[in-house]
Amino acid sequence: MQVIFSQNDEADIDELKGAFLSFLEEDSPIRKSIEQELDTSDPKVRLKDGAEKKTWEIQHFDNKPLIAVIALLSKIQIDVQNAESNILTYLYSQIDASSFKFNKLGARVIAKTSYVLEGDVYRAEVFLAAEDTTQQPIILINDKPLNIVDGKGIYEVPATSPGTYKWGGIIKYKTPEGGFNSYPFEEEYIVSEPSVTISPTKMNVFYMGVPNPVSVSVPGVPSEDLQVTVTNGKIQRDGKDYLVFPTAEDINGRNTKVTVSANIGGQSRSMGAMTFRVKQVPDPVATIAGQASGVIRKEDLLAEAGIFAALIDFDFDLKFTVTQFDVTFTGAGGYTNTWSSTSNRFTDEQTRQFNALTPGSIIYIDNIMARGDDGTNRPLSPISFKIR
């Protein structure tokens, strides 16, 4: 820095002082010393001087010996040089004053996920992290500090229910000046239910006319990000699961496929598919008093109001109602008589015939038709009973 200094002009000193101070902040520790060293303000009026106002020049140079004036001018030169040197030293120290100091380096790898689908790309950020082991950061989550271990905050929260959860906080780090810088952050994580897929390959069957429940899950993907489709019929969500309604019979499973896709990173990815066979609901069995043939007591027969159609060992909620049947009685001499009903209930005439039965008599019920909730009409196998 080059400064042109006039020893005889107070204005030059003030101008130089102003130039020096322009390099310094208001709270600079050397600002006050420079103002004092290069002060050219007029002295205060003193009574012992006769209350005469003196200027800075008169105060220091009027009626002073030459040797004193030279000494004062030399002092002013030294003060200017010292001020210049102090400013340069201060400015140089400020170049790195606000830089953070670290004493430890370590490799870090941050991956978006450690679970990668086949055909996808594993991506991670690899970098060198600097640490200051002499001070720990302050990490606040919901205004509560985290436990810090080796300069890293440990965030733990119980995973109580599935879903996507967002969280965040602030990292506060002390600056070299003694203040704190704040660094906000946000993150999210996904909680999934523990799941396992067990597929009975011989039981991949849908039934016509009933809602077929299907459970679909993909590890690491929330259920709301899944898209499930079926090629034969329609599929709809039922809570966490799905219901499939096939529209056509497909005994060999050639045209019925359930496909699952997932929304991952804003893109739809195929997770796989599974084929199913589609069958008609099996025919029900006609029963009286819970029996589908055999020996029956006359009292048990008379206690029943009619014939019921039961789906044996079929777990779906589907009902059939008998719409017609014939009852044939075998009497003495081998003669037979038949009485018909156009509902699922015994007619009055059929009931009177039941009252006349004797032990050993045979009743034969055929021409049985039943209608199901799925809208189909089914002919049922005949049943027969021997009166005990």
Rank of each mutant, 00 (worst) to 15 (best):
215 S>I: 08
111 A>M: 14
264 I>R: 05
287 T>I: 15
257 K>C: 15
385 F>V: 00
49 D>F: 06
185 F>D: 01
348 D>R: 12
172 K>L: 08
99 S>W: 10
75 K>Y: 08
88 L>F: 09
320 F>H: 14
258 V>S: 06
154 I>L: 08
28 S>P: 02
26 E>F: 13
310 A>E: 15
9 D>V: 02
308 F>H: 15
47 L>I: 12
279 K>V: 02
110 I>Y: 02
24 L>W: 02
73 L>P: 00
34 I>G: 11
245 F>S: 02
57 E>C: 04
69 V>G: 04
228 V>Y: 03
227 Q>N: 12
12 D>S: 15
227 Q>T: 14
252 N>M: 08
70 I>M: 11
206 F>E: 05
227 Q>K: 11
297 R>N: 15
214 V>K: 04
218 V>H: 05
122 Y>H: 13
126 V>N: 13
263 N>F: 02
343 S>Q: 02
193 E>R: 14
184 P>G: 01
337 N>F: 15
174 K>N: 00
387 I>N: 01
278 V>C: 07
296 I>C: 00
78 I>N: 15
104 K>H: 14
209 G>K: 00
24 L>E: 05
20 F>S: 05
280 Q>I: 05
368 I>C: 09
117 L>Y: 12
7 Q>T: 12
239 G>A: 02
179 G>N: 13
346 F>Q: 00
286 A>T: 01
201 T>F: 03
319 K>M: 09
171 I>A: 06
80 V>T: 11
113 T>R: 04
202 K>H: 10
340 S>Q: 09
53 K>F: 04
114 S>P: 05
339 W>D: 12
357 L>T: 01
3 V>N: 00
130 A>W: 05
260 V>W: 05
62 D>M: 09
104 K>R: 14
133 T>Q: 12
101 K>V: 15
154 I>A: 04
136 Q>W: 05
349 E>W: 10
96 D>W: 05
337 N>E: 15
374 D>I: 00
59 Q>V: 11
198 I>W: 13
338 T>H: 09
6 S>G: 07
317 D>S: 09
347 T>S: 03
241 D>E: 01
2 Q>K: 10
386 K>A: 12
338 T>D: 04
175 T>G: 12
334 G>F: 07
256 T>K: 06
49 D>S: 10
226 L>R: 03
166 K>W: 00
46 R>G: 13
165 Y>W: 09
325 F>W: 07
29 P>T: 01
98 S>K: 10
67 I>Q: 14
60 H>T: 06
201 T>D: 13
33 S>M: 12
311 L>S: 06
71 A>C: 08
373 D>P: 08
284 P>H: 08
318 L>N: 12
297 R>A: 10
305 A>L: 14
263 N>Y: 08
